[in-house]
Design a protein around this nucleic acid. Structure first.
Length: 473
DNA sequence: TCACCTTGCACTTTTGAATGGA
DNA sequence: ATCCATTCAAAAGTGCAAGGTG
């Protein structure tokens, strides 16, 4: 397999001014794409405690689930929205004394899979018209999972990444220009059973499916049971009055089924429930929730101060998402690619006027595109390569021309429904040297919109690498 | 013994087929 | 015949707890 050389990789970071200028000249350059995590407040609540995600053999949804909105796409160009999970580091963790501790070296990564949003491919206008819910993404710990769920290891930490890939079909995805975003607060530890009771409580409080475990739910149930008994009692009385005879041996037993049915109906109609709409999660989960993390909520999460590697993790100050921009460590270079001018990428000029340009007009709004190297994983050729390309979820890119639809010698990974099977991946980013003191040296960059509740994922530039090919162990 | 995983349970929400009316 | 709204049962998604496993 051939790799294209990108001279930028042999140098370190290039100036961002040139690309900024170019972007200004070409408003539809993909670098203008912005991605926002819709339910970031909820994510932040979990992140402050150290988010845990249950993984099961048949597959488990995430909660909170990823809900993103995208802007800056070309309305008539087709895109894929793809999600994958990147190991945060090379460690396995354990929950000990109310906090996560390193428990050894990470397990070899299972086959990396991606979740392709079922609407893919769809024109930019489709993706931009409303937020994109990734509710149905499932996580599993079954390395032989036949359903195509994303395979993770329990007690390992992961970072979801969101890829916007400009492609018309799945075969083009591997060679299409893409941009990657990630949000620090979506980091989580995969577990088979919850470890942190605070996380459990937060999940119960916010997840509609867990309503039955809420304290208020219990009270509600007691209320229903009481209502049921009263109802049965009066039914019996009415029955007896109507018949003018003594009760049968056990009328309650006889009436139970009907009464139960009626009661169910009654409780339904008397107390109508709003249907659960994942798109409105934010509305249903107001921040400042009583169980939300406060300053006293200590940080079991090793992520608490990874935002700035210069800060000690021992610091207990809560992370301030509203004003910090994460530092992005330099990345090692392994594979070299040929850099191309991004302006060669197709972008229909005729549709320019149709684009909602509000985002572009805000000086603080636009997520800048750092001139960094791509951390795009790639396929097979670097199997066993000890210095595989950093797959650190930090994002970066180069600009490459559109490649062949099916490059010879490059096998298209099998597709499982909306998932793609990938070679195993490896987090090759910086390794914490003093976990947890300097641990989680996660090279993420948080694009912060001051004065707004939303912040943006860190960004890659567009690239033309074989998409989603990981360096393997 | 311990940490972690699996499984079954009770509960809730979601989904989709069936039905009836306009 | 088509469309729309409603109903209802089944499926799916939750956390919990007990038991299993290495």
């Amino acid at each position: 397999m051939q790799y294209i050389t990108d001279p930028r990789h042999s140098s370190s970071m290039t100036s961002s001014s040139s690309s900024s200028t170019a972007r200004a000249a070409e408003p539809y350059h993909q670098g203008n794409i912005r991605m926002t995590l819709e339910n970031s407040d909820l994510w932040r609540s979990f992140h402050n405690l150290g988010t845990e995600m249950i993984i099961t053999k048949p597959g488990r949804r995430m909660f909170p689930h990823c809900n993103i909105s995208v802007s800056g796409l070309s309305p008539y160009t087709n895109y894929f929205i793809i999600v994958d999970m990147v190991p945060v580091d090379n460690f396995r963790y354990k929950w000990n004394k109310e906090q996560w501790e390193v428990a050894g070296k990470a397990e070899p990564q299972p086959p990396c899979r991606t979740y392709v949003h079922p609407d893919s491919p769809a024109p930019g206008s489709h993706w931009m018209k409303q937020s994109i819910s990734l509710l149905k993404l499932k996580l599993t710990n079954n390395t032989l999972d036949p359903s195509g769920h994303i395979i993770l290891h329990s007690m390992h930490q992961y970072q979801p990444r969101f890829h916007v890939v400009q492609a018309d079909d799945l075969y083009n995805v591997h060679w299409a220009p893409f941009q990657t975003f990630s949000f620090t607060e979506t980091c989580f530890t995969a577990v088979t059973a919850y470890q942190n009771t605070k996380i459990t409580k937060l999940k119960i409080d916010h997840n509609p499916f867990a309503k039955g475990f809420r304290e208020e739910g219990t009270h509600g149930k007691s209320k229903v049971r009481l209502t049921f008994l009263v109802f049965v009692f009066f039914s019996i009385c009415r029955f007896r009055a109507h018949k003018g005879q003594t009760c049968p041996e056990n009328p309650a037993k006889k009436l139970r089924t009907e009464a139960e049915k009626d009661l169910e109906y009654q409780s339904c109609t008397d107390f109508p429930r709003l249907p659960y709409d994942p798109q409105r999660e934010d509305d249903e989960v107001p921040m400042g929730h009583k169980h939300g993390p406060g300053p006293q909520d200590d940080h079991m999460s090793p992520w608490d101060s990874e935002q700035d590697p210069s800060h000690s993790l021992h610091g207990d100050a809560p992370m301030d998402f509203s004003s910090s921009e994460q530092l992005v460590p330099g990345q090692a270079t392994y594979h070299l690619y040929r850099s191309q001018d991004f302006r060669r990428l197709p972008s229909p000029p005729s549709i320019e006027s149709n684009v909602d340009r509000r985002h572009y007009e805000s000086s603080v709004d636009v997520a800048t595109v750092p001139d960094r190297e791509v951390t795009r994983p790639h396929i097979s050729a670097n199997v066993g390569g000890p210095q595989g390309r950093p797959l650190n979820g930090s994002v970066s890119t180069t600009h490459m021309p559109l490649g062949p639809k099916n490059k010879p010698g490059h096998a298209t990974p099998p597709v499982y429904g909306h998932h793609m099977e990938l070679p195993c991946g490896q987090w090759n980013g910086p390794i914490p040297t003093q976990y947890p003191t300097s641990g989680y040296n996660h090279p993420h960059r948080l694009m912060v919109e001051h004065g707004h509740s939303h912040h943006h994922g860190n960004v890659t530039e567009w690239s033309q690498y074989p998409l989603f090919s990981y360096s393997c162990w």
